[in-house]
Amino acid sequence: MIEIVSGAQVLFLTAVLLTACAAKLVVREEPAPAGDEWLLKLRRNRRLAVAVALAEGGLGLALLVSAHPAVRIAVAAWFAAATWVVGELLNRRPDAGCGCFGGLSTARVGRRGLLRAAGCTVAAIASLHASGDGLAIAAGAPAMTGLLVATELALLVMLSPELGALLDRYRAIVPCEARPSPLAETYQTLHASSDWREHRSALRSTEPVDVWREGCWRLLAYPARIGDEELEIVFAVSTEQRHRAVRVALVESETEDSGPTPFRPVLA
């Protein structure tokens, strides 16, 4: 019985690791959560995200083709580290999402996420007793193993908000111009952008003087000074559901004698 349970964990963990790898590579996190926490700084690094995904994929494949204890120990250590990371996020920045399955893991980190990671760690420890690699286990597995793996995967799905996020991606998407976009989302996208970091030091205030919407874009105008020159820095943040872009322009401050409103000329 112990052998069946251990073998099932190998297959279960393989499925989890390969799925997490694919999700991280295919569903890119965006926008990268803003914040100075080192965990978030690491998550803003796309190369690191790809490296993490490849490591997970490598561990998943290794579980399939190797029964070496080092692989099982590495997997257990990986999930233990993941559990600690999720715990840190839960305490410090639950709003940032865990990123466990890339851009699908944007939901607020909760105890269910921590329980999920801890459960995977327990499964990884249980897999240490399994004999044979994943392919061999799958080839000779009794029905009980399949039932156990299916049950564990079902439990995992129940603890995961990512399935809802995945379904949302395939439901009708509201066009960006008609999509309600909360200000918090705009600020999160803006503050995480390279344009913001590049121009932040020039701003005279981090409070915009005007915030307004133009279809697919929300515009924010900030007073700024570069050298002795008074300017306005205008950021445009897209209101797309995903892959929100940021644009920036430096505009000369308006003078009082700019004249009356130039109504757009009549069409001919």
């Binding site: 005007d210 307004w212 133009e214 874009w217 515009l219 105008a221 306005e232 205008v234 950021f235 445009a236 644009r247 920036v248 322009a249 430096l250 505009v251 308006e254 700019s258 409103t261 130039p262």
Partner: peptide, 13 residues
């Protein structure tokens, strides 16, 4: 305000 938004919009978009 109308004039300012037109200028800003044109500059960035």
């Amino acid at each position: 305000l109308i004039r300012s938004r037109r200028r800003h919009r044109q500059a960035v978009l």
